[in-house]
């Protein structure tokens, strides 16, 4: 078709329609597969989203759907209450510091463990190690916290017993702000490192075995194989996990902290999640906790977007 003269309007609508039709037809299988799934997101995720307005209202927690719609607008009142708390900066600081520590220590741990397991000899040995390493993941934090408290108690706990043997005074570790974050990080690693290896091992399993064989034939040593094949092979998954981890940066690890902390360590341990929990104990401050949740989500999303851009620039596929 000649494009010297601009096509007439009538013809371009027809073209557009035909283009749309071909486009729908071309990808018809993908559309069909995607449709029920996106329907799920529409119904169960997007329909209830009107609830976000609760954060901006004086919602009392009564009256069903009408109750939400007809509550008075409170503007930023709930957010202001939140930002003006004398503890706001402390809560923010504690949340970020814990996340930072976890990022530095707890994020690489499963990767390292996965590499070690991958390099280990003996099929049966590997299976057993894997199975055992998952076990702490299945214990709830209520149990784990209980175990930790028993281990560290100055009243007859083994750690303190050891210290006494060495001539030192017993220390109440879990009530001591100097040790508390360390305890949080170490217990987190212990509980989740095994489970975290699953996804990295799966990624390692997807690496083409021929790459290893070819490298072996070229004379590559164990180290070289690990650095030049295995690590790059899981690069994408590490990137994704890191990006998603960015979104968790304001996550307060409620179950863990709540079961281990006490007012003695509020200064280093109290974060948004535990604070809001104490606030809303029986009186269901829906609006207030909704506002805090919204704030956290907004910041988390912003961080994920940044992380995604950075990852893409470094060559990854990113999240989107």
């Amino acid at each position: 078709m000649n494009t010297i003269a601009a096509p007439s309007r009538k013809r371009s609508i027809g073209t557009a329609r035909r283009k749309a039709a071909t486009w729908i037809w071309k990808y018809r299988y993908l559309h069909a597969l995607a449709l029920p799934c996106m329907l799920y997101f529409l119904i169960f995720k997007y329909l209830p989203m009107y609830g976000i307005v609760i954060a901006f209202k004086d919602y009392k927690g009564m009256g069903g759907f009408e109750g939400i719609v007809h509550s008075d607008w409170a503007g930023m009142k709930n957010f202001n209450l939140f930002f003006h708390s004398i503890y706001f900066w402390r809560l923010l600081r504690n949340t970020l510091v814990l996340s930072l520590y976890l990022l530095i220590f707890a994020f690489p741990a499963p990767i390292i463990l996965a590499l070690l397991i991958n390099e280990a000899r003996g099929r049966w040995f590997k299976k057993v190690v894997q199975s055992i390493s998952y076990m702490p993941h299945f214990l709830s934090w209520v149990v784990c916290a209980g175990l930790v408290l028993q281990l560290l108690t100055p009243t007859g706990g083994p750690v303190n017993a050891l210290m006494e043997l060495m001539g030192k005074e017993p220390v109440a570790f879990t009530s001591d702000p100097a040790y508390f974050r360390l305890i949080l990080v170490v217990t987190n690693i212990w509980k989740e490192v095994g489970w975290g290896t699953i996804i990295y091992l799966a990624a390692m399993a997807s690496i083409d075995p021929e790459l290893y064989e070819a490298a072996a034939m070229d004379g590559a040593r164990k180290w070289q194989k690990m650095f030049y094949i295995t690590l790059p092979g899981i690069k994408e998954i590490v990137a994704i996990m890191l990006i998603l981890g960015m979104g968790d940066i304001l996550d307060g690890h409620f179950e863990q902290v709540f079961n281990l902390y006490s007012p003695a360590v509020y200064d280093v341990a109290d974060n948004f999640d535990t604070y809001v929990y104490r606030q809303g104990l029986v009186e269901a401050k829906f609006a207030y906790s909704s506002a805090v949740g919204l704030f956290k989500s907004a910041v988390a999303l912003a961080l994920v977007v940044l992380a995604n851009r950075a990852a893409k620039r470094l060559g990854s596929d990113g999240l989107w």
């Binding site: 995607a34 996106m38 997101f41 119904i43 169960f44 995720k45 997007y46 329909l47 209830p48 989203m49 009107y50 609830g51 976000i52 609760i54 927690g61 069903g64 759907f65 939400i68 979104g247 829906f286 909704s290 949740g293 919204l294 989500s297 907004a298 988390a300 999303l301 994920v304 999240l319 989107w320």
Partner: peptide
């Protein structure tokens, strides 16, 4: 539609209506 869908889905990972609207739904 890949980009649009992915963004719509990812958005739901951070934002949601909360417990009460879900309950009503």
């Amino acid at each position: 539609l890949r980009g649009a869908f992915t963004m719509l889905i990812a958005f739901t990972m951070w934002f949601g209506g909360g417990l009460i609207p879900m309950f009503l739904l």
